[in-house]
C-alpha cells in the first residue's frame, strides 16, 4: 500500500470513526446495549446450582462464561454498521465523491471495515470492566490483548461479508437482513452461549467450523484461565484474512458508486 493510499485510508477512516463519537446517542447506545445483554442474560442463569454451573459451564459463574461469548457475538453485528454506512454513502452520493477521486476501491473498503470494527471495539473495555464489577473472572494478561485483537480482526472479517452483499447495491434493507441471517445460526451453533458437550452430533460439526466458537473459546481461555491457544488464534487470523482478501477484490472490481 502506497503512502498516498495510507493517507486516503486515514482520512476516510477518520470520517467513519467521528460519526460514532459525534453522536452522543450512538455512543451511549453502543455501550449500553451489550451491558443490558450481560445484565439480563447473565443474570437469568446465574442462580443455577454451583455444581451444575461447574459441570456444565466449567465455571461457578455463568457471567464469566457468557462475557467472552457475548463479545464474540457482537463482532458479527458491528459489520452491519459498516455496511449501513456504505449504503448511506451510496444514497447521499458521498461514495461518488470518493470514487471520482484517485482513490482505489480497496482503500474505501478498508476504511469501512476498519470503521465498523473500531465501533465494536468501544464495547470491549466497558464490558470487561462491567463484567469484572459484576463478579466475572477476568485474568489481566497479554493474552487478553491478543484476544481483543482477534475480536477486532474477526469483526473486520464479518464486515467484509456484509460489504460484499452491498458492493453493487444501495439497498438499505440488506445489512439488517444479513445480520439476522448470520447472527442466529452462528450464535447458536457456536459455544458463545452454551458449551458444546450436549449438542447433537451435527451441531457439534457446525460448531467446530464456526469462527465464533474459536473466538469465544479463546476468550474464555484468556479471561478465565489467563492461557492461550495459538492454533485457534491463527485459524481466526485465517478467517479474517480470507474474507478481507475476498472483500478487497470484490471492492476493486464490483463496487458501484450508487
Amino acid at each position: 500500500m502506497s503512502l498516498r493510499s495510507m493517507d486516503q485510508l486515514l482520512a476516510l477512516y477518520y470520517r467513519e470513526v467521528t460519526k460514532v463519537y459525534l453522536s452522543v446517542f450512538t455512543l451511549v447506545v453502543t455501550i449500553v446495549q451489550p451491558l443490558i445483554w450481560i445484565v439480563f442474560f447473565g443474570s437469568s442463569l446465574s442462580g443455577l446450582p454451583t455444581f451444575f454451573l461447574e459441570s456444565y459451564f466449567h465455571t461457578n459463574n455463568y457471567l464469566s462464561f457468557l462475557l467472552p461469548g457475548e463479545l464474540s457475538v457482537s463482532s458479527i453485528s458491528m459489520g452491519m454498521m459498516a455496511s449501513m454506512s456504505l449504503v448511506q454513502d451510496k444514497r447521499l452520493g458521498y461514495l461518488k465523491r470518493v470514487m471520482v477521486s484517485p482513490t482505489r476501491n480497496y482503500v474505501i473498503f478498508l476504511a469501512k471495515v476498519l470503521g465498523g470494527a473500531t465501533r465494536g471495539l468501544i464495547q470491549v473495555p466497558i464490558l470487561l470492566v462491567a463484567g469484572y464489577l459484576m463478579g466475572a473472572q477476568i485474568a489481566f494478561s497479554a493474552y487478553l490483548f491478543l484476544w481483543v485483537t482477534a475480536v477486532f480482526l474477526v469483526s473486520m472479517g464479518f464486515s467484509s461479508i456484509y460489504f460484499m452483499f452491498n458492493a453493487t447495491s444501495a439497498d438499505w434493507q440488506r445489512p439488517g437482513l444479513i445480520m439476522n441471517l448470520m447472527t442466529m445460526p452462528l450464535m447458536f451453533s457456536s459455544t458463545a452461549l452454551f458449551p458444546k458437550e450436549f449438542f447433537p452430533w451435527w451441531l457439534k460439526l457446525i460448531s467446530d467450523v464456526n469462527p465464533l466458537t474459536y473466538l469465544a473459546e479463546l476468550g474464555r481461555l484468556a479471561l478465565i484461565q489467563g492461557a492461550f491457544d495459538w492454533t485457534s488464534f491463527i485459524a481466526l487470523m485465517g478467517f479474517a484474512a480470507f474474507f478481507l482478501a475476498i472483500g478487497a477484490v470484490v471492492a476493486e472490481y464490483k463496487l458501484t458508486p450508487e
Binding site: 493517507d7 486516503q8 482520512a11 476516510l12 470520517r15 447521499l92 458521498y94 470518493v98 477521486s101
Partner: peptide, 23 residues
C-alpha cells in the same frame, strides 16, 4: 448535480478529507 458534502463535518474538515484523497 446533487450537493455532496459531509454534513456532520465542518467546511475545513470536508476540505481536509478532499485534500487527503487527492494528496
Amino acid at each position: 448535480s446533487e450537493v455532496i458534502l459531509d454534513d456532520d463535518l465542518t467546511a475545513m474538515q470536508n476540505l481536509w478529507i478532499q485534500a487527503k484523497l487527492y494528496g
